[in-house]
Design a protein around this nucleic acid. Structure first.
Lengths: 202, 202
DNA sequence: GTCTATACCCGGATAGAC
DNA sequence: GTCTATCCGGGTATAGAC
């Protein structure tokens, strides 16, 4: 537990500092660009110094996202194990536009096979899908499980439209990493389910 | 109709050529980076020459996406007016990873308020939501309308997990442009509907 | 092992010649 | 309207000081 070894713990103190600075930089940046130089200034170093610890800008940003995931898990639990935690994380994300922007940026860039975050995102989605599917399955079989969380958002056409558009965009992200996904088929099924729900509440 | 005037038609011949070249470049690029120079080479010009017509790289890419939308509408009809068209477009997109990557890239970048594509994406989503909501509402009220399209994808936990993750990512994109959206509430409602559907088919 | 200095390259932007 | 030339910002690689 003390003075951890291995490639990921080598420079843990400084790495930690840099990650914090990067996190802060992105949080403050709203949705503007952040350069390695910017981050370096915050820790009182040069860009080369920062890169020394991470190898490249992209690797650094990947590490930021990993740190963000770890922090979220520490605070709320794993979304893959607990749906409630997932919603809490989303709620929390809504207070940090800069980091959401970072996530979206890197997720897009990670479609490149040789991007440092490529494997990270592949795993993230694979794990997320596995965990979520398991939870959904368990809850669906368990009559004790809540039928649905408090419906803050009404199930209405506007909501369904947002969801349909969101699912379209999000599936593209997953599909770029995992081309086996049949986007149109998945969306058609979603359309069917949404329609059914709309009719039910009408 | 002939020799159109105005700021958007000035150099229409060359602009058209450049847009075609950019489209082709992105289609071929898979999901790799494409520079203005690359596009310029394709039309036998220098980067400065290309930039002359669009002002900036970002503006050029925005124009490419607009052209892509226009082409899709011409081929399939508007997704905002016809759900079937939307699915056709998605199916077609699945054959052009480069353009999907471009879309995702620019969509992420367009979160910046001063990005040239900012207004374009705001409108795109607003129009999409309006059109989709209207269609969903109409279909939900019309007993003649298909209950659901052919269910190629089974409504099962794996599918629901993909959708939930996709909706989460996609909502972030919409939320960056339209912070009024309550992501967690929308997702909670989606969870409820998905769960209901899973129980039904069980 | 950590960092600075430096130099390099790529890519986008801009000014001015043609 | 297009090119050449130039600039600049930003990421990266390397040498070497500490």
């Amino acid at each position: 537990m003390s003075t951890p070894r291995g490639p990921y713990a080598k420079t843990s103190a400084k790495r930690e500092k840099i990650l914090e600075a990067a996190l802060a930089a992105y949080a403050e940046a709203g949705s503007r660009k952040v350069s390695v130089r910017d981050i370096a200034k915050r820790v009182g170093m040069t860009d080369a110094g920062v890169l020394h610890h991470f190898g490249s800008r992209e690797a650094l940003l990947t590490a930021v996202l990993q740190a963000r995931d770890a922090a979220a898990r520490a605070a709320h639990g794993s979304a893959a194990d607990d749906l409630r935690a997932g919603l809490d994380i989303v709620t929390h994300n809504a207070s940090t536009p800069g980091l959401v922007k970072l996530f979206v940026d890197v997720a897009a860039a990670a479609a490149e096979t040789d991007h440092p975050a490529h494997a990270f995102f592949e795993e993230r989605y694979a794990d997320g899908r596995r965990g979520l599917a398991e939870q959904l399955d368990r809850h669906a079989r368990d009559p004790e499980a809540p039928h649905a969380p408090e419906p803050v958002t009404p199930v209405d056409p506007e909501w369904a439209a947002r969801i349909l558009l969101a699912a379209t965009d999000g599936l593209q992200l997953q599909w770029l990493l995992e081309p086996d996904i049949d986007m149109a088929a998945d969306l058609a099924a979603l359309y069917g389910v949404l329609m059914e729900a709309l009719r039910e509440r009408a």
